[in-house]
């Protein structure tokens, strides 16, 4: 057993893109281990396995069960354990989405085996050990983890590895698995309602415009919102503004709030304390606006505008709109 299995997370009608990232990395690991790349495609209704194969999977274990149409970990735990036992992989990769981070521990405990959370680096060393690299201490350290049990599970952070490319016409095997999902314990949790879009989802935003202590009044968030809405982006905030109740917790960027990695992060009146940096320093592009030229945020920004946010932010919005 030297295969690598990717859990293809989906919400019943769409495979989560982290799965394609895992296939890219998984292929590399499988090659180094001398094994095959497999995928577990478990869902409420049947999903096409073709894209998983075209993106590198040699074999797809596909199974459907009505109860998998809802995000209930114990149902998924039962069928994923079944598929793992059938396919017998050495390494299992699960996206470190909220669902993955909630499901993987149940699977690891059920199999009495190792699990490393939220990896940002994965490799196979010369002795064929699976090396899992993960940030801890709010991103300030990187721990290199090895396992002594098998199989070895890891959850992997979204948007760290590139998606595997598509090789059109690539062939692979699809194994339709008859899932046995009968356990009473899978009926202990029930979804009553899906409330989509009620909560702010900063993690998925392409653009985040965030405010810090430079903002003088709660009402002035309007300036930040105006700029964010130009990009169809989301509004973030540093901890002090959230603590003061100016904006909800869901908007807080930092290690005790959300960790974001948008295409563009615009920090307005944020000095750049480590608390905040831990939540946004991996953004593709960082633009900082601050009146203090010695603010640490400028060391982490690609572009820094020294100036009063009350002048710079409206000016930026105005010029972007071409007014």
């Amino acid at each position: 057993m030297s295969d690598v299995m990717v859990f293809a997370e989906n919400n019943g009608n769409k495979i989560h893109p982290v799965s394609y990232e895992l296939l890219g990395k998984g292929k590399e690991l499988a090659d180094k281990l001398g094994g095959e790349l497999t995928a577990a495609l478990l869902s409420g209704t049947s999903l096409p396995a073709g894209e998983l194969i075209e993106r590198g999977a040699d074999r797809v274990y596909r199974g459907t069960a009505e109860r998998l149409a809802e995000p209930i970990e114990s149902s998924y735990r039962e069928v994923l354990v079944q598929v793992i036992e059938e396919a017998n992989p050495e390494v299992i990769l699960i996206g470190a989405t909220n669902f993955g981070r909630s499901l993987a521990p149940r699977v690891a405990m059920a199999l009495d085996t190792s699990l490393t959370a939220d990896c940002t680096g994965l490799d196979i060393d010369e002795e064929k050990n699976f090396v899992q690299i993960r940030p801890a201490f709010s991103g300030n350290i990187l721990a290199h983890i090895k396992s002594r049990t098998s199989p070895q599970l890891a959850t992997v952070r979204y948007r760290v590895f590139p998606e595997a490319g598509i090789e059109e016409g690539k062939e692979g095997e699809v194994i339709d698995v008859e899932l046995s999902l009968g356990g009473e314990d899978t009926k202990q949790v029930e979804v009553l309602e899906e409330r989509r879009g009620k909560k702010v989802n900063l993690e998925d935003a392409e653009v985040v415009v965030a405010a810090g202590r430079g903002l003088k009044k709660e009402e002035d968030f309007e300036l930040i919102e105006d700029l964010a809405s130009f990009f169809d982006g989301k509004v973030g905030a540093s901890r002090p503004l959230v603590d003061d109740g100016w904006i909800g917790r869901a908007h807080q960027v930092g290690y005790s709030g959300r960790r974001v990695k948008p295409r563009i992060y615009i920090a307005c009146g944020i000095s750049g304390q480590s608390q905040h940096l831990a939540g946004m320093k991996d953004s593709d592009m960082i633009i900082a606006i601050n009146s203090d030229p010695s603010a640490p945020i400028f060391d982490y920004a690609d572009y820094g505008l020294v100036g009063d946010l009350y002048e710079v932010v409206p000016e930026l919005t105005r010029q972007l709109k071409g007014e």
């Binding site: 699990l115 350290i141 721990a143 290199h144 983890i145 090895k146 002594r148 940096l277 690609d302």
Partner: peptide, 16 residues
């Protein structure tokens, strides 16, 4: 089941 093989403390990534 897991052990920390080694640990790095990378300096904060400053940008140009």
């Amino acid at each position: 089941p897991t052990r920390v093989a080694n640990m790095e403390v990378p300096p904060p990534e400053e940008r140009e």
